[in-house]
């Protein structure tokens, strides 16, 4: 069979992971779960790798579910957190994280805005987490606005960020509406892409997307 792949990857190399997680991955990431107990780690240490990777065993099922919850929460936060940036290079926003994944979310924003200080307020823990230009993370129990003010005081106004100080909410709303093709409407698929629980996230509560939810239809739309 012809190989169309231009880079010469060995065809039998496993792309991605084997099923399940390694013990190291579990030890590193399971403590992030809000319902984690050290007893689970003890159990993991006593069980063979094969049993953990076999999704049929009850322990593996539980662990996989917990890991999935942790990573999907981090992913949803990266997707749906809406941020603002001020003219002093402070990027800030609000998140709702039950599990301890704030560092993953902060690093995501830090990778994209390495010059900025990123502040994220977690509504669940009521703490504000910061990551600075060097990648150091700090967590403090102070409201977001105060943290942003405190950090901003120490930084001068930067022309780069000053240039993008205007409201973007309308711009995104207009862009979003312009992309929708009415004839291709597919509420089921839409719901799959943005499940209902995502509308509880701070960035999506008043989001444009919510207005297009199926249960938000006006009576007129049913009549005509």
């Amino acid at each position: 069979m012809k190989t169309r792949n231009s880079n010469n990857i060995e065809p039998l190399r496993v792309a991605g992971r084997y099923k399940g997680y390694s013990k190291e991955e579990l030890k590193r990431n399971l403590p992030r779960h809000c319902k984690f107990s050290p007893y689970i780690l003890k159990q993991i240490n006593n069980v063979a790798d094969v049993t953990l990777r076999n999704s049929g065993s009850p322990l593996a099922k539980k662990i996989n579910r917990m890991m999935k919850e942790v990573f999907s929460e981090a992913y949803r936060a990266k997707q749906f957190t809406r941020t603002e940036i001020n003219n002093r290079g402070v990027l800030y926003g609000v998140v709702l994280l039950k599990h301890d994944v704030i560092d993953l979310v902060l690093r995501y924003f830090h990778e994209r805005w390495p010059k900025c200080i990123v502040c994220l307020y977690n509504e669940h823990s009521r703490k504000t987490s910061l990551i600075n230009e060097k990648g150091f993370i700090k967590e403090i129990k102070v409201p977001l606005i105060e943290v942003v003010e405190m950090v901003s005081e120490k930084h001068p106004i930067m022309p780069y960020f000053d240039d993008i100080q205007f409201s973007g909410k309308d711009i995104f709303e207009t862009l979003y509406k312009s992309q929708f093709i009415k004839k291709r409407e597919n509420p089921h698929y839409f719901k799959q892409m943005i499940p209902d629980h995502c509308y509880k996230l701070p960035g999506m509560r008043n989001g444009t997307e919510k207005r297009f939810l199926n249960n938000n239809r006006k009576l007129d739309e049913y009549i005509f």
């Binding site: 997707q79 749906f80 929708f180 839409f190 997307e209």
Partner: peptide
């Protein structure tokens, strides 16, 4: 990462 989806799922 996809940050939003239109009602047609794209």
């Amino acid at each position: 990462i996809c940050h939003s989806y239109t009602p047609d799922g794209r």
